[in-house]
Simulated scan of single mutants.
Amino acid sequence: MEQRTWFITGINSGFGRHMSEQLLKRGHKVAGTVRNMNSVDDLKEKYDNLLWVAHLDVTDTTAIYEVVNQAFNELGKIDVIVSNAGYGLFGAAEELTIDQITHEIDTNLLGSIHLIRASLPHLRAQGGGHIIQFSSVAGQTAYPGGSLYHATKWGIEGFCEAVSQEVAPFNISLTIVEPGGARTNFKNHSAKLGEELEVYSITPVYNVRRMLENTSMNPIGDPAKMVKIIINSVDKQLIPKRITLGSDSYNSIHQALLSRLQELESQEELAFSTDFTANE
């Protein structure tokens, strides 16, 4: 595999940590961002010059552009941008506070949008590159209790679909990653719940809440295997536009797409009936 420089947000835990460890072990350079600079001291001590670290909270729009500019200025060419930082906010829509909603959107959606925007001028100037956007099974499906999380994941997928077409002429490719449940300690560190309203205790929202609160259930997905596939995808002749990871993600997305397609096809005659006729 060709040695590359990767820029990854949120390398202190979860997929960002797994990806950084695998890349550094292979001899790649990693430019990583964290909110707590001490959280990756062990990686810095072990890999020294292969690891470049900067402080970044992706809700700080100005800082995103500053850090991306700094990384390119100090490291030169960066081959792969990985938009990974984010978290899950769960609960019925009316159980969430305005501040919770704003922070979720600022982190998952706007943070990812601005990271990609900040990177594009540099990638164009160097003649190309690749962007990996972490989404989720939640970017193609929807469950009660996940409305705001789904809003951010569906939103960033739409953004990336359009941007990938905009930048293809500049030799910039983009991949959306849709993992299912993985053993990244998501429930303890990356999932937040809104204040419980009693009225929702007899609805499906209750089941989602109980599932998230039950830390004894282990997800089926192996994050190390998932990250390996993501890293290796950059070497493929045709880099995939989407990577679905985990049997739970595949099954859920497959069913959701089939259901939407069936509903669409059932309305074909109705849709065509609203066109002007040839002689109008």
Score class of each variant (00 low, 15 high):
9 T>C: 03
132 I>K: 06
28 H>C: 06
90 F>M: 02
220 I>A: 13
76 G>H: 11
157 E>I: 00
80 V>T: 06
106 D>M: 04
90 F>K: 01
149 Y>W: 09
177 V>P: 00
123 L>V: 02
174 L>W: 12
224 A>M: 15
4 R>I: 04
119 S>Q: 11
54 A>K: 13
41 D>Y: 09
261 L>K: 13
181 G>Y: 07
244 T>C: 10
59 T>L: 11
80 V>R: 02
21 E>F: 15
263 E>P: 10
238 L>T: 15
146 G>K: 14
20 S>Y: 06
16 G>Y: 01
178 E>R: 00
52 W>C: 04
226 M>E: 05
180 G>I: 02
273 S>A: 07
242 R>Q: 15
183 R>I: 07
155 G>P: 08
242 R>S: 09
235 D>W: 05
66 E>R: 15
253 I>N: 10
26 R>E: 14
169 P>E: 02
182 A>P: 07
208 V>T: 03
3 Q>K: 13
249 S>W: 01
145 G>V: 08
79 D>I: 08
83 S>D: 01
117 R>F: 14
164 S>Y: 00
251 N>H: 08
234 V>R: 02
181 G>L: 03
204 P>F: 05
207 N>D: 09
149 Y>E: 03
215 T>F: 02
211 M>N: 03
225 K>Q: 04
59 T>Q: 05
166 E>Q: 08
221 G>W: 02
136 S>I: 10
6 W>K: 06
73 N>R: 15
10 G>Y: 03
66 E>Q: 13
159 F>Q: 01
199 V>T: 12
231 I>P: 09
261 L>Q: 06
226 M>T: 10
2 E>L: 06
260 R>D: 14
100 Q>F: 04
40 V>L: 08
74 E>L: 09
190 S>I: 06
256 A>Q: 14
124 R>Q: 14
41 D>K: 10
84 N>L: 03
210 R>C: 04
103 H>T: 11
246 G>M: 04
134 F>D: 08
80 V>G: 03
138 A>M: 05
225 K>C: 11
169 P>M: 03
211 M>K: 01
198 E>H: 10
